[in-house]
Simulated scan of single mutants.
Amino acid sequence: MSDLEKRVRRLEDRAEINDLVVAYFLAADGDDLDGVGESFTEDATFSSSGAQNAASRAGIVDFIRTARGYMGLTIHTPHYAHITFDGDDEASGLVGAHLELVLGGQSIYGAVRYVDRYVRDGDRWRIAARDMRTIHIAPWLEVGEAYSSETPVRWPGAAPGPTDYPRK
């Protein structure tokens, strides 16, 4: 493969991974569990703040199905995907996003970063590992107070906690 072909392939890979990031969010928001599953490898993992929630494609789909059972309308809005290639068929990513969710009957808003690992699985890219790290999240009416506090992570029904990205 020539240098030009390698460079073009890398651009195509980057575009496909970006499309994968968006497709996952659209599938999650649209309750398309098949689409959610297609986003992950068979042996993928899904974590939140470093704690594993599910392992395997089927396990992740079950985890998302259960979580969505407590949710109403959701909007996942990706803002960027910073992708670093670790080889021809592996990449790491950091995806910044905002979440607007109805969770347990309560409207919440927040910002997260997904720490991802991608692999080429056959003829397409898929997520091999995803760890959702929370910057801030709170009920809409508490966002301003929560965001400026030492405990900006306020999932409904849980004790307020620190951000996964504290200032240094």
Rank of each mutant, 00 (worst) to 15 (best):
D86F: 01
A158C: 04
P139I: 01
F46G: 00
E142Y: 01
Y114E: 00
G69L: 06
F85W: 09
V22H: 05
S39H: 08
D31I: 02
V36M: 08
A23F: 03
A55H: 13
H82C: 01
L103H: 10
G35D: 10
N18Y: 04
F85D: 00
F46C: 11
L33A: 05
T151H: 08
G37N: 08
E142P: 00
F63R: 09
A146W: 06
T41A: 12
H76T: 02
L20P: 13
Q106T: 15
D86L: 14
P156H: 09
T66A: 14
S48W: 11
V22R: 07
L73M: 13
G144F: 03
D116F: 12
A51Q: 11
I75H: 09
V102N: 07
P139A: 12
V102Y: 01
L103N: 02
P78E: 01
A146E: 05
E90C: 04
G122L: 06
T84E: 15
V102K: 00
D116H: 09
A51W: 02
S39T: 11
A58Q: 12
A158H: 14
I127G: 00
L33Q: 01
Y118R: 08
L33E: 08
L11S: 07
I17S: 02
R9Q: 15
S39P: 12
L141T: 14
L4T: 14
G105A: 04
A28G: 00
R10A: 14
F63P: 00
V8Q: 07
A27S: 15
L4H: 11
S56D: 13
D34K: 12
A129G: 06
A27T: 02
A51E: 14
D3G: 11
N53G: 13
L4I: 15
R130G: 01
V21M: 04
A129M: 01
T134C: 06
E12N: 04
H76M: 05
A128M: 02
R10L: 14
E90F: 05
D32N: 13
E142C: 00
R130I: 07
F40M: 04
W125S: 08
D31E: 10
G122T: 04
V102I: 13
V102W: 03
V153A: 05
V22N: 03
E42Q: 11
P160C: 03
T134V: 15
I137V: 15
H82E: 13
E100T: 09
Y70K: 11
G59I: 02
D121H: 10
F46D: 03
P156Y: 12
A27K: 03
L11M: 15
